[in-house]
Design a protein around this nucleic acid. Sequence first.
DNA 1: GAAATAAAAGAGTAAAAACTCTTTTATTTT
DNA 2: AAAATAAAAGAGTTTTTACTCTTTTATTTC
Lengths: 143, 143
Amino acid sequence: MVSKTCEYAIRAMLFIAQKSKSDIKVGVKHIAKAIDSPEPFIAKILQELSRKGLLQSAKGPTGGFFLDNAGLKQNLADIVVAVDGDKLFTGCGLGLKSCSEKKPCPIHDEFVAVRRQIKTMMKSATLDDYNTSLELGEKYLKR
Amino acid sequence: MVSKTCEYAIRAMLFIAQKSKSDIKVGVKHIAKAIDSPEPFIAKILQELSRKGLLQSAKGPTGGFFLDNAGLKQNLADIVVAVDGDKLFTGCGLGLKSCSEKKPCPIHDEFVAVRRQIKTMMKSATLDDYNTSLELGEKYLKR
DNA sequence: GAAATAAAAGAGTAAAAACTCTTTTATTTT
DNA sequence: AAAATAAAAGAGTTTTTACTCTTTTATTTC
Ligand code: FES
Ligand code: FES
C-alpha cells in the first residue's frame, strides 16, 4: 500500500503531533522507541521531511523534532505524497503506464472507487485530530 | 498496492484466459507483447504459478500456457495471494506488526473498510468474467 | 568558554525486488 | 531419427528499498 519508509514517517509524525500539543520537542531516540523503528533510519526520514518543511527541528540540548500549528493541520495524504509520491492516488491498479478513462484496465472502475476511499481516509483528519484517541489509549503506534 | 510481479501476473492471466476460451495455448513471447512486460521475467512468473497449479503449460511446438475450466473460475485475489501473500488482505495500514481490534492503529477502522472493498473488487469476478469486455475492446491490458 | 546534547549531512552496507541469460528437457513436425 | 519449438530450471545481474555508521554543526547548560 505505502512503503515502509512512509509507514514509519506517518507513525512518527503522529507521535510528534501528540508531544507538540504540550510544546515538547522530542528526540530521535525517543521517537524510535515510541513507534518501534530503527533509530538512524527514522532520523534520516525526518531530516528529509524537515527539509521539505513538513515539520520543524532544533539542535542541541532540549532540541528535537516538533510541529508548529500549521504542521499539526496536515493530513496523512500530505505525508504519503512527500515520501512516496502520488502514485497511490493516481496510478493504475494493474500497473498500466497511466490510469485513464480512455484506455481503462479491467478493474479501472472499481479501482477508482478504492482510490477515492483511500484518499478520503487520508484527507479527512489532520494529525491533530488523532491526538485524543492516542492519548486515551484507544489507538496505538506500535504493538 | 501489489508488487510489479503481481501486476504482470494478473495481466498475463487475464490474457491467457481470453485465449483459453478458444482453446488456444499461448507462448511467452506472445504474452509478453500483449501485456507489455519483459519476456524472460513473465516467463519466470508463469512457471512459478504453473508449479502452484494456477495455470497449465505444454512444451514443444503448439505448446504454451493455458487455463483449464477450473483455472478460468479463479479470481484476482487468488493470484494476488499466490504472488504477494495475504498481507494486502490482512496487514495493518500503518505497518504495525499485525492488525487487530485489540491494539488498533489510528486508521484501523477506516482501513478495514478499504481492505474489504479491495477484497470485494478482487473476489467478485472470475478471470472468465473479464473476457467479454476485453474482447469488445472496452478494457485494455497495456497502453 | 568548555562540555554535553542533539540534529544534519554524507557515505556506506544489506536485503529484497525486478529483471536477464544460459542450459536442459519435453514435445511435435518433417 | 533429426530439426525445430517452447517451457523448465537455475544461476546471475541490476536496481531499489531498507537500514547503518561516522563526522560535522548548532545549541544549550554549567
Ligand atoms: S486504468 Fe487501471 S485503474 Fe485506471
Ligand atoms: S491495526 Fe492498523 S489497520 Fe488494523
